[in-house]
């Protein structure tokens, strides 16, 4: 066995050179890249932690803002509720007043309409009464009507007061005697006797329906159905009262 010192020296140098080469081209780059990755990972983790802390801070701030907003919302809701309640009360009062006014106006209007309607009905009733009376009289025989007229006029003339009723004799003009039908001679004689000293002019007016009307000067004496109906209608218009039939 031979020991070669030059080989020992060369191998020592070779291993030292290899050590330098591997350190330069293997270990240092790999360690550096691992350290770089580790640093990047740590930076990533620290960034993530910072982001998380920032997110938590923002979350806390957002939660605080939410609480403030919720408090404001509750306060605004309470104020709105109170305002709405007040407004509702005022509106209810106004509505009640408006209803009362409308009801009162409606009552007045209804009363007025009722009165108008009643008057219209009364006018229609009057016209109807006139029509009915005329039609009923028209159905009676002319002799019967004449008899009734003569008899009723006889009684009426007899019931006239002795002094001048209604001022028929205030002037000297003739008295116009209008009747619903021709008068008989006895009734004419009774009239001449009643209004002695005055000239009488007789005429027939069917519009009187049944009865007599004496006109002289500025006055007239009426005793006919037409006058009765007009009198009733006038009383209704004046008194504005419903018709009460006796």
């Amino acid at each position: 066995m031979h020991f070669d010192w030059s080989t020992l020296v060369l191998q020592t140098v070779n291993v030292l050179v290899l050590l330098w080469l591997l350190r330069r081209f293997l270990f240092r780059p790999v360690v550096a890249i691992v350290a770089e990755r580790k640093a990047a990972a740590e930076k990533l983790l620290s960034d993530a932690a910072a982001k998380r802390e920032e997110a938590e801070t923002q979350l806390a701030a957002a939660t605080a803002r939410d609480q403030v907003v919720m408090a404001d919302r509750d306060r605004i809701l309470a104020e709105a509720h109170t305002a709405a309640e007040t407004q509702r009360t005022e509106l209810l009062a106004q509505a009640a007043q408006e209803i009362a006014r409308n009801r009162e106006a409606a009552t007045v209007t209804l009363a007025r309409e009722n009165a108008d309607m009643r008057r219209a009905l009364e006018a229609e009733a009057q016209d109807l009464a006139v029509a009915i009376a005329g039609r009923l009289l028209g159905r009676l025989p002319a002799e019967t009507i004449d008899t009734i007229l003569q008899q009723s006029l006889g009684g009426w003339i007899g019931s006239l007061p002795a002094d001048d009723p209604r001022g028929l004799t205030e002037d000297d003009g003739p008295l116009v005697v209008a009747t619903s039908g021709p008068l008989s001679e006895p009734v004419r004689a009774m009239l001449r006797q009643r209004f002695s000293g005055r000239k009488l002019e007789f005429k027939v007016d069917p519009a009187l329906i049944l009865g007599i009307e004496v006109m002289g000067g500025h006055a007239r004496l009426r005793n006919n159905w037409r006058a009765d109906l007009e009198s009733i209608a006038k009383e209704l218009k004046v008194d504005d009262k419903p018709i009460v039939l006796a």
């Binding site: 066995m1 020991f3 070669d4 010192w5 080989t7 020992l8 020296v9 191998q11 020592t12 070779n14 291993v15 030292l16 050590l19």
Partner: peptide
């Protein structure tokens, strides 16, 4: 042995 000696020397 020279190589092993070199390694051991190092």
């Amino acid at each position: 042995i020279e190589t092993d000696a070199a390694l051991a020397l190092i």
